[in-house]
């Protein structure tokens, strides 16, 4: 796997992170080492194995479709600094 400046910038942009030149230079050899190590998993035959997304079997946990008390609007907004008229206020979308 080729880990270079371009790959790291592409992934970081997907993750909404701006990295400095120093950070990128530091991360390249580290990620190369880690991703090469991850590739070890290719040695394991998983052709007939289903992936596990939980360590124990979890059945669908559904509740009745009835409203229950939950956070009030005031509580939901309590920790936001940018807000207006009972709504979260975000940056411009376009």
């Amino acid at each position: 796997m080729k880990v270079d400046d371009a790959l790291i910038k592409r992934v970081a942009a997907n993750a909404r992170l701006n990295l400095s030149g120093n950070e990128i230079r530091e991360f390249i050899p580290q990620f190369k080492e880690i991703i090469d190590y991850f590739s070890k998993l290719d040695e394991v035959d998983t052709k007939n194995t289903k992936p596990s997304f939980q360590p124990v079997e979890v059945k669908n946990a559904l509740r009745e479709d009835k409203p229950k008390p939950s956070l009030t609007q005031e509580e939901a907004l309590k920790n936001a600094q940018n807000k207006k008229d009972g709504y979260f206020k975000g940056p411009r979308a376009v």
Partner: peptide, 15 residues
């Protein structure tokens, strides 16, 4: 598929 799903499958074998 090569990384995330592969790891989830190896997890099954570890369990």
């Amino acid at each position: 598929d090569a990384y995330y799903l592969k790891a989830a499958s190896v997890r099954t074998k570890i369990i």
